[in-house]
Amino acid sequence: MLKQFRYIFILCSILLTACGQSFIVETSLDVPQPVPSPLPLKMAVLYEPQLREYTYTENNEDRINWSIKIGPSQVQLFDLILPAMFTSIDHIEQSSNTEGQGYDAIIIPEIKDIQFALPFETKSTLHETWIKYAIHIQQTNGIEITTMHVIGYGKSSNKTSIKFMLNEKEGLLYATNQAFRDLAAKIIVTFQSNSDIQKWLVSKSIH
């Protein structure tokens, strides 16, 4: 009987330890409303499951049971910026069978990589986040117009990092929101200056 209690005690201890060290969070989004500068285009956006449901996971000695859900924030981000970029934007479920629906092009955002750095890893007082995207822009017949590669970077400020040292989650979420903010700004500005996009707009008599 005593032996059984001992096993139960050890099992509970292991489970409690594991729970205590797990890092399970969901990012949120706090990015200002962009100044609208809509191009007269009817666009469609496809959020593939890989983007919508994206969860960053890692499990090693330094980062035990990390699980950072960022999918919903990504969708929220594109839903915030795309209406400021185009006069019309629709959500679609698949890129095929879109011919004849009057769309000028289809946007398919793809997350390529996300990285985090914590203060104890970089010997600094900063939490940092990098997010890398490939934004595919294609015609309704599947022909690619361009793929924009954009990297967003965010960090917690020195002042707030002292507070965040006590709360790893807050620091990381703040840095990730800053990365989203940087990313969204770059997507809007890069789209306007991308040479392939410029050529395509000229071909459509839009300047």
Partner: peptide
Amino acid sequence: MYPYFEAST
């Protein structure tokens, strides 16, 4: 003025 006066833009 977002996104035109961000550090990167």
